[in-house]
Every structure is written in structure tokens, then in C-alpha cells.
């Protein structure tokens, strides 16, 4: 083990899906390697901010819950994102807050109460050897994670952390306005894309005025939405690169919003792209939850994104 790292946690119980995620894997998408990184960029970035880490530090993404960790030394942590009924030993775990946990104490994630994915950052950051420039864990590609082979956390794993630069300071909490209630219906901002005018008028009306239901076919690759069938005059296209948040519409007319682990190229017409914050919000929706799509402009979307980044890098 690197001398600047130490064992921070032992995994007592792994739960269905806990993954190590830094900002993502960049500069290799032309090789067919997916972007990866946190499905909810917003909560992930806040976890690092609260833990006092720099942008991009590796964080645990805990989906559905079920994970139980035991601290192997005194640690400063912050947990953000979904309310997965987490406990600090027997007490409810305070979220969106920098807290201190002692050696031997446990963090226990239960079942989803609000939202789907929680983010646990430790001061100093989790530590793993980057693969293709990133530790972001992609099970399908067998890349990243603590072992470099794309493995999700497993019982008995010991998780290495980097020593924090500075000692614990006072508790810091994220502003209330930055702590979303994921159980409320989501409104997702979408930047219209090049094929939008190829959809029928009726379909465009439906796309932006109907409620969409999050299907149970939803994962880190993409989230399928069910509702009225959308019709596009283009059936399929020559495959081309797909950017984050692209909302593609296959011939069955049911849109799929493509998230971090999407395939790098694809050939269905697209309504456009969810903004990064809208993609984050969608990643917290449980199957059956309802969402709406709202068209937005590039200028407003960029302003909003930059305001968010300014806050988490403050």
C-alpha cells in the first residue's frame, strides 16, 4: 500500500451496488470506452465539497442501500444524495453535513426512502490505482474501482483512503436549497437537439406536456421513460457519438435518457440532451416516479451549470 494511504473502511455487507466514482474517464471515448463517473454529479460534487476534497476525488456511489461499512480509523466523512435510511451505528446518519466517525463505528445504509443513490466522501478521498486515467468503476467494461477490474464492493473488502491534507475542522452543512427532495416529481431541463424538428407536432406537444414515468429498465447506462409513443420521421440513423443526457427515441416511441455508462455511439434520433443537472436529478428517480421534460436554452443551461460548479468549488 502507498505510504500516504491507509485502510479507511471494511465492508461488512456490500448491498446490491456500491461503486467507486471519480469525475469519470475522459479522453478515451473514441476507443469505445464509456464516460462513467457519478450518475448524480450534483450530490457527488457536494459530498467532496463537504469533506473538504478537491473536485474529482473518488467517492462511493451507493445505489439502493444495503451497504454496511466499519471504520478502521477515525475519519471525517460526508454523505449526500438519496436518503437510504442510513445510520451511524444506531443513530440516524446526518446527511449533507461533514461529520466525524470513530474507529470501529459503522455506517449502515438501509432501503431507499427518498431517491436512489447516496454518495459517501471521506476527507482525503478514497484511493485506488487509475485505469485509463480514472478510478471510475464500470462493471460492464471491467475497468476501475478499488481493484482496477471494475468490481463493485464486496463483503470483506478493505477500502483504502488517502490521508487528508488537514485535520478535521468544524461541521459544514450544504445549503438547504442544495438538498433536493427526490420524492417530488422531477422537472428535467432539456436542450433541444438536431432531430427535434423531425418529430411530429403532436409528439413534440406530448414530449413536453405529458407526464413520463420512470421505467424499471433504468441503470447507469440509461433510464427508459414510458408514456405516449413519440413519432419521429427518421427511423434510425447512421451510428454517431452520444453525449451525456441524450434523450433518444427508438422505434417504439418510448424515450431513453442516456447517462454516464451509456454506449459511446448509437443510431436513434434524439429529442435533445438533458442538462448535466437534469441528468443528475433523473438518476435519483425510482421506477414509477413521474418526471416532466422542459425545454431550455443553451445560455440558461450553461449559466445554471456554472453557478453550481462555483458553489461546490467554493
Amino acid at each position: 500500500m502507498n505510504p500516504a494511504t491507509t485502510y479507511g473502511f471494511r465492508v461488512n455487507r456490500a448491498g446490491p451496488l456500491a461503486l467507486l466514482q471519480d469525475a469519470g474517464r475522459f479522453g478515451v471515448r473514441h476507443l469505445g470506452v464509456t464516460q462513467s463517473g457519478p450518475a448524480d454529479l450534483h450530490a457527488w460534487a457536494w459530498a467532496n465539497q463537504l469533506a473538504g476534497n478537491r473536485w474529482g476525488s473518488p467517492v462511493l456511489e451507493v445505489t439502493f442501500g444495503g451497504l454496511e461499512l466499519q471504520a478502521e480509523c477515525d475519519l471525517t466523512i460526508a454523505v449526500t444524495g438519496a436518503d437510504l435510511s442510513a445510520k451511524h451505528d444506531t443513530q440516524p446518519l446526518p446527511m449533507w453535513l461533514r461529520i466525524r466517525i470513530g474507529k470501529g463505528e459503522r455506517i449502515v445504509f438501509g432501503a431507499p426512502a427518498r431517491g436512489l443513490r447516496a454518495y459517501l466522501a471521506v476527507a482525503g478521498g478514497f484511493s485506488a490505482e487509475p485505469v485509463l486515467g480514472s478510478v471510475a468503476c464500470v462493471v460492464r467494461e471491467k475497468l476501475g474501482g478499488f481493484d482496477g477490474q471494475g468490481q463493485r464492493l464486496a463483503e470483506g473488502d478493505r477500502l483504502t483512503v488517502s490521508m487528508p491534507d488537514c485535520a478535521y475542522t468544524e461541521a459544514v452543512e450544504a445549503p438547504e436549497s442544495e438538498q433536493p427532495d427526490y420524492s417530488r416529481p422531477a422537472v428535467l431541463d432539456l436542450l433541444p437537439g438536431a432531430q427535434i424538428a423531425d418529430f411530429t407536432g403532436r409528439s413534440l406537444y406530448d414530449a413536453f406536456n405529458c407526464e413520463w414515468r420512470v421505467d424499471d429498465r433504468a441503470d447507469r447506462m440509461g433510464v427508459r421513460l414510458t408514456g405516449p409513443a413519440l413519432h419521429c420521421r427518421i427511423g434510425s440513423m447512421v451510428s454517431e457519438g452520444i453525449s451525456l443526457g441524450a434523450v433518444q427515441v427508438p422505434p417504439d416511441g418510448q424515450p431513453i435518457a442516456l447517462l454516464n455508462d451509456r454506449q459511446t455511439i448509437g443510431g436513434y434520433p434524439r429529442l435533445g440532451n438533458l442538462t448535466p443537472l437534469a441528468a443528475s436529478r433523473l438518476a435519483q428517480c425510482l421506477p414509477g416516479q413521474s418526471v416532466r421534460l422542459r425545454p431550455t436554452g443553451a445560455e440558461q443551461a450553461l449559466r445554471q451549470h456554472r453557478a453550481f460548479i462555483d458553489q461546490v468549488q467554493a
Binding site: 473514441h30 454517431e240 453525449s243 456554472r306
Partner: peptide
């Protein structure tokens, strides 16, 4: 520059929106 994805007829250019605007 963040990523370039060439395909049959297109090139997808992804950049850092914090460094340069759209």
C-alpha cells in the same frame, strides 16, 4: 478538449464548458 468521438459520418466534439462557452 474533453473527448472526440468520430463515427461513420460525424465527429462528436466534447469540450469543458467551464473553459470555453458553447
Amino acid at each position: 478538449l474533453v473527448d472526440l468521438v468520430p463515427s461513420y459520418t460525424t465527429l462528436l466534439v466534447t469540450f469543458d464548458p467551464l473553459r470555453i462557452s458553447s
